[in-house]
């Protein structure tokens, strides 16, 4: 579904990714684990075309996207829920929800989305998207990309800074959208949470992927993982 090879990326003069290689198969939930500054978010942004300078190969369904503008990548069927959530304060909650254009058939309809996120339905009339709580903003940021028909979802630290009960709800949501056939690439700091949703884990450090651990082998590799993540 998504195959990344030799990905390099730069912010201005600083060289952030140094040849990232990994792949995500259709229907999988895959996480990128790693310390702060390992290059996880930059990898996500590179896939979405949001990094000004990138080289190497990012193939989605066999088509090369490395030279595409981000709107073309979105139209190919990839959607991002960014780390900073990207909720617009000048738009109401409903406008935020309806903002991303439909890129393909097969997205979830609003009723299904409101079943997954009942609190969003209650807050639908809120005049400013940024007036929602952190958890509600996170759910809105996930919910609005489920509408678009994009089948490859990039979720960048969706649990960051949220209360345990909200984290659980997001975990349920990720398992639910996997069951519905979505493919998810997830950036996480919290590998205990990642273990509850993911099929495989890639570990990043200093701008490269250094290891891959299948979820069932996570327990056996705990020492190694602690070493990688420095926890």
């Amino acid at each position: 579904m998504l195959k990344i090879s030799g990905l390099n990326a730069w912010y201005g003069e600083s060289h952030v990714l140094h040849g990232v290689d990994f792949e995500v198969r259709e229907g999988e939930v895959v996480t990128l684990l790693g310390r702060n500054g390992a290059g996880k978010t930059t990898t996500m942004k590179s896939i979405m075309g949001l990094v000004p300078r990138r080289e190497g190969s990012i193939a989605y369904k066999g088509a090369e996207t490395i030279r595409m503008a981000s709107n073309k990548i979105a139209r190919a069927g990839i959607a991002i829920c960014p780390e900073e959530r990207g909720i617009f304060g000048s738009l109401s909650v409903t406008e935020n929800m309806m903002l991303p254009p439909i890129v393909a058939p097969g997205g979830l309809d609003l009723d299904t989305i409101y079943t997954l996120f009942p609190n969003l339905k209650e807050r639908a009339s809120t005049s400013q998207g940024t007036k929602l709580s952190g958890g509600e903003q996170q759910m809105l940021a996930i919910a609005r990309i489920l509408r678009t028909g994009a089948k490859m979802l990039l979720l960048d630290e969706p649990t960051e800074g949220l209360a345990p009960v909200i984290v659980q709800q997001i975990g349920r949501t990720i398992r639910e959208i996997k069951n519905r056939g979505f493919t998810v690439l997830l950036v996480e700091q919290n590998f205990r949470f990642a273990a509850t949703v993911a099929d495989r884990h890639y570990v990043m450090d200093h701008g490269v992927v250094i290891d891959m651990i299948p979820n069932h082998a996570l327990e056996a590799n705990m020492d190694k993982l602690h070493d990688y993540l420095g926890v």
């Binding site: 981000s70 709107n71 990207g86 254009p101 678009t148």
Partner: peptide
Amino acid sequence: PMVQAFGV
């Protein structure tokens, strides 16, 4: 950039 990343 965010709006463009949605496909606009």
